[in-house]
Write a protein that binds this DNA or RNA. Structure first.
Lengths: 243, 243
DNA sequence: GTCAAATAGATTTTCGAAAATCTATTTGAT
DNA sequence: ATCAAATAGATTTTCGAAAATCTATTTGAC
């Protein structure tokens, strides 16, 4: 085998492919909140049969990105001010714990990973050059990686998987917000402060900065969610009327 | 329709049925940790076709009770000392937050529900009369309900669902422990103290009692897990060799 | 006209078999 | 005897269609 291709086997199961695409489409709000997910439509969209799609939807249902009503099918999970607030408050608590553990346990390896993640994030453009009303996929990845790196030394796979699930949920709200207002916030400085405090093992400061970071996102997203609601009513999007 | 039957419609989807049975069988360790879950075998066990079973397994995989390896099928999630410790430490942190919120927000309704849940728990026999090496299903339900009632006023569906997912995971370890030692612990008093402190809004005391409650379970379960491991090697159970 | 029952179309759910993949064993060259 | 390629059986994954369920509309009795 050519060494350049190495392990890029792409031998992904159709089910895994459906799962990844669906998750990505939902988080980026290419599939809008509350939008019905008809198996037939998804079959065409992703070019595969029934089974892998239904199986992927079931996994996403367990993760909370999709809702299932017996014999009535699937839809993208609803969003609301109340859910957003609950989500962000929970995120703060979870990340607070994970951060405390990580700052206590993190070694040189962790420090290096964090620096590396920050560097990659800071060099990545946030805006998608093609579509200014969306965040660049590359930036999203680096951003997620950075926040994962912050807590990666916490030593608890349980807390880490909970954290990343809540982070994903939040990303969906951010995407929604971007769609209505465009990406304004430049948060390189914010992330840098967060990293500095973490590397200095200033536990309380790091936790507080993280709380502020999340709260600021909450405020911004919450505002545009409220505005968007009254303007266009979220149930009408992409020219289609949903449920 | 006969009024006595009323809404007991039992019109459950096969998929939901598979999900409930599988989850219950896994938590009670009727399907042992690490045991391979062949679709063919489960099809006979639950008397249904491929699809509902695979869909249920996918949901359980997202919940962490089942593990999936691409093109190699499903198995019941592994257990280990490390995972147990991580799980219980995380549980303590999550429940601490949920308890704090619940004690701050809980009203009369919550107090009444908690009292009611405790009463039902205290009147339910823990041991299954038929099989003394297993906990009675009825007791398990009341026990789960009691702990859910404690935090039910926390106001965060996110934290509540995280909490109950971790609780379920822990139940599996408890079941494993019971199988090797038999149910000894009488924890009515423990639960009563917990409830009293909660109703008195003694936040710190409640949190501390809860920590002790979980830690005690951890110690017991951890001990018998270590013992069982050296005695019988967990991979051989029910006369079948797994893996 | 009003309301419940009947009907038709759309959608979800389930099945059984075909296709793809994996695992263990055998084969055959060195 | 050793090792890689070939083979066969078991298992997972996927498909396409049948069955069950839901939704909206029509029908018909009062």
């Amino acid at each position: 085998m050519p060494p350049s291709l190495a392990k890029s086997d792409s031998a992904q199961t159709l089910n895994a492919s459906a799962f990844n695409q669906l998750r990505s489409d939902i988080i980026a709000c290419r599939l809008m909140p509350n939008e019905r997910l008809r198996v037939e439509a998804l079959r065409e969209r992703y070019e595969m049969g029934n089974s892998p799609i239904r199986e992927a939807l079931m996994r996403l249902e367990a993760e909370g990105l999709v809702e299932l009503e017996q014999n009535k099918g699937f839809k993208v999970s609803e969003v609301s001010q109340e859910k957003l607030l609950d989500l962000m408050q929970s995120r703060i608590e979870i990340e607070t714990i994970a951060l405390r553990w990580a700052l206590e346990k993190g070694g040189v390896e962790w420090e290096a990973d964090l620096l590396s993640a920050f560097h990659r994030l800071s060099r990545q453009a946030k805006v998608d050059p093609l579509n200014p009303r969306a965040i660049s996929a590359a930036w999203s990845k680096e951003h997620a990686d950075f926040h994962a790196a912050l807590v990666s030394a916490c030593g608890s796979s349980t807390m880490m998987s909970i954290r990343s699930r809540l982070f994903e949920q939040a990303e969906r709200y951010v995407a929604l917000s971007i769609m209505s207002t465009g990406p304004l916030r430049d948060d390189v400085t914010e992330h840098k402060q967060l990293m500095r405090a973490a590397l200095n093992r200033e536990i309380d400061k790091t936790i507080e900065l993280n709380r502020i970071h999340i709260t600021r996102t909450l405020d911004k997203v919450s505002g545009s969610l409220a505005a968007g609601k009254s303007q266009t009513d979220l149930r009408i999007v992409n020219g289609k009327t949903l449920k």
